[in-house]
Computed example of a mutant assay.
Amino acid sequence: MSIIQVTNLHKSYETLKAVNGISFSIEKGEMFGLVGPDGAGKTTTIRILCGLIKQDEGVVLLMGKDILKEKKEIQNNIGYLSQKFSLYGDLTVDENIEFFAEIHDVKDYNQRRDELLEFTRLKPFRKRLADQLSGGMKQKLALACSLIHKPQILFLDEPTTGVDPVSRRDFWKILSQLLKEGITILMTTPYLDEAERCNRIALMNKGNIIALDSPIKLKEKINKQVIEIVCNPIRNAYKLLKEKFSLEVQLFGDRINIISDKSFDYEKIIDFLTQNGIEIIDKRITTPSLENIFMHLIK
């Protein structure tokens, strides 16, 4: 049986439909990602699963138990790391972990605390006030606090937003180790490069799940190629391509992605741009990224 089972989940805030009848299941030991832009319904979903808010309709089962009927028992077996740093800035690293251990009624927590400090590389900073930690260190402390009671499921709501690249890498190393220990992880992220690391992902938009599968299978399903072009002036090129070709053209910073069938001759595009005074700096054929797929599915 799945460790998380969500069926026909609905949640509205007045006229806003935040979650619109979504269903999914997660197996034990899996890393599952809810992926999408702000306002997609990711945070609302994760807060319902943690028992922090009630759904309007639908059934949520965690470890075979109904979140509406056995919330307290479920919450004793889950960890939750919210979007915003929610620990106590006037307490030290040690004191924050002790506080959360006592909340979860963990009696002999000293060894577990030391293991988590070693695990998150926070041991040298254990006497430092939480307010004096960097953004990445605060997130690692929040993670340590959410793990003090050895949860079966860990919920992470955009855990690396606003965190520097080095801390993001360290954070992902920690999550990899947790997966080896058999913890199930459900995370939300707006970063599609992070979603690539999940076993499976659900792409969300406006309260709906628009695709659900492993990142590799999602890429296979689209059965397209991406013609990637770096050129100058790029905005002129983008406008010309949109007007000339009945292809999906996506603009990403300094490059243009054109989604086409694999049989399409991309030299037609290169010739067209060159004839119109566009300087081609670089070009290549590549497989679609999750970002390409997400934009393609929305369109």
Rank of each mutant, 00 (worst) to 15 (best):
M1I: 10
S2G: 03
S2D: 11
I4K: 10
V6N: 09
K11C: 07
K11W: 02
K11Y: 02
S12F: 13
Y13Q: 07
E14A: 11
E14S: 14
K17Y: 06
A18I: 08
G29C: 10
E30W: 08
F32V: 07
G33H: 07
P37N: 04
G39L: 09
A40S: 14
A40L: 06
G41M: 11
T43K: 02
T44H: 08
T45R: 05
T45F: 02
R47T: 13
I48W: 02
C50S: 14
L52K: 05
Q55L: 04
E57V: 01
G58K: 11
G64R: 10
G64Q: 02
K65F: 00
K72Y: 06
K72Q: 06
K72H: 09
N77Q: 15
I78H: 07
L81N: 07
S82Y: 03
S82T: 15
Q83W: 13
Q83H: 09
Y88N: 08
G89P: 04
E95L: 04
N96Y: 12
E98K: 15
E98Q: 14
E102V: 06
K107C: 01
K107G: 00
D108Q: 13
Y109E: 04
E115D: 13
L116E: 04
L117R: 10
T120W: 04
R121G: 03
K127D: 12
R128M: 12
A130T: 02
A130L: 09
Q132N: 15
L133I: 13
L141M: 07
A142V: 04
A142S: 15
L143A: 11
L143F: 12
A144D: 09
H149K: 10
P151V: 07
F155V: 14
V166G: 00
W172P: 03
W172Y: 14
I174E: 00
L175A: 05
L179C: 05
K180V: 02
I185R: 09
L192N: 04
A195S: 08
N199K: 11
R200C: 12
R200V: 10
A202D: 03
M204T: 12
N205C: 00
N208L: 14
N208C: 08
A211T: 02
D213K: 04
D213Q: 01
S214E: 03
S214Y: 01
P215V: 09
L218Q: 01
N223M: 03
Q225M: 13
I229G: 13
C231H: 12
E243T: 13
F245D: 01
S246N: 15
E248S: 12
Q250N: 09
G253T: 03
D254Y: 06
R255A: 08
R255E: 03
N257G: 00
I258D: 02
S260K: 10
D261W: 01
S263C: 02
D265N: 15
E267Q: 14
D271E: 14
F272Y: 15
L273D: 06
T274A: 15
N276W: 07
G277M: 02
G277T: 05
I278E: 11
K283I: 11
R284T: 14
I285D: 03
S289E: 05
I298Q: 04
I298H: 01
